[in-house]
């Protein structure tokens, strides 16, 4: 289910583990410290015809993301407006993996994003309780060098930060329909509207029939596109990698490090603008290792601290 990792020889594995688990002076293969991340590059607006897009690379891991908005009919409670995610793992990201293996992996990654990232996105109404914009997020993993899920989540977040919504004008009409049916030439009576009856709601007001035209909408092209509200608070993912038989944790594992230390704790944090407070919106433990219950609290606190820094860093460079 998890992503394919490169094969390592036993001596390589033990070299990596003993380097990482050194209690006094742990080292890493590229001389980063344990809580250092590789440099993160973000580009916004890479697809000219997408509503929002981004390209994120963390070291050798590269992801492109694009969002397309679709119009759907839904009620607020029905959640039909909730976004859809598709993760595409290109075969060249894992040249030695089997194709069917990759498709199960991409389904797995899609489900993680669907359950931990998408619920944090507010509805994008056109006509509240009737029509909504539904974001379709498509993520493509171009190359992989470890820490894939973080890169996917960061790319999703950046694409939503880049998402520009069109202004909407609502077109409707309200007509009086007090007269009896079929009276008078040239007056639009009920009979003439039979074709669009479905779109018309008749309601009685003060004893008279008011026909209200089915609310229609159009894009308001006179105004600029606007960025989504609350994009600063979208979730980020902090993956804490656990070193076997050691209390050490490290960030942003390379593919080799992931192969040697398969256990990791994924923590999704979203923030709310008003309170400047982080909220956990997903926890996942991957790999065979178990965590002692006494450690969990400390790990989450540490994750929250790191997530705060990441959110601050990413929000500092949002497209304007």
């Amino acid at each position: 289910m998890s992503l394919p990792v490169p094969t390592l020889s036993p001596s390589e594995t033990s070299y990596i583990i003993s380097s990482l688990s050194d209690p006094v002076q742990p080292t890493r293969s590229d001389s980063r410290t344990l809580l250092d991340s590789r440099s993160i590059d973000v580009s916004y607006g890479i697809f000219p015809h997408a509503n929002g897009s981004s390209r994120v690379s963390i070291g050798g891991t590269e992801v492109v993301a694009g969002i397309k908005l679709e119009v759907v009919d839904s009620l607020e409670q029905q959640k039909g407006w909730r976004g859809k995610v598709e993760v595409d793992i290109t075969p060249q990201a894992f040249p030695s993996a089997q194709p069917n293996n990759l498709s199960t992996t991409s389904a797995y990654l899609s489900s993680i994003l669907q359950s931990h990232f998408i619920p944090s996105i507010a509805p994008l109404p056109i006509i509240p309780n009737q029509k909504y914009f539904q974001p379709h997020l498509h993520l493509t993993l171009i190359s992989s060098d470890g820490n894939v899920l973080s890169a996917l989540v960061l790319a999703a977040r950046s694409a939503f930060s880049d998402l520009r919504l069109p202004k909407i004008k609502i077109i409707s009409w309200v007509g009086e329909n007090g007269e009896t049916e079929g009276e008078g030439e040239g007056v639009i009576g009920k009979g003439d509207l039979s074709g669009i009856k479905a779109a018309i709601k008749s309601k009685s007001k003060r004893g008279r029939n008011i026909t209200k035209g089915g609310e229609d909408w159009d894009l308001d092209l006179s105004e600029d596109l606007v960025y989504m509200e609350g994009r600063e608070g979208l979730p980020v993912l902090i993956t804490l990698n656990l070193v076997p038989n050691s209390p050490n944790i490290f960030l942003d594992a390379t593919a080799q490090e992931e192969s040697a230390c398969p256990s990791k704790l994924h923590l999704f944090f979203s923030s709310s603008l008003k309170e400047q407070q982080l909220k956990i919106c997903g926890i996942r433990l991957e790999g065979g290792q178990s965590i002692d219950s006494s450690r969990i609290k400390g790990l989450i606190d540490e994750g929250a601290r790191i997530a705060g820094e990441l959110i601050q860093g990413v929000n500092g460079n949002l497209p304007q």
């Binding site: 809580l35 250092d36 991340s37 440099s39 993160i40 590059d41 580009s43 890479i46 790191i306 460079n317």
Partner: peptide
């Protein structure tokens, strides 16, 4: 801890 760079989309992009 994090160095985040924003790169303008390249010419091909």
């Amino acid at each position: 801890m994090f160095t985040i760079k924003t790169i303008p989309p390249s010419s091909t992009q």
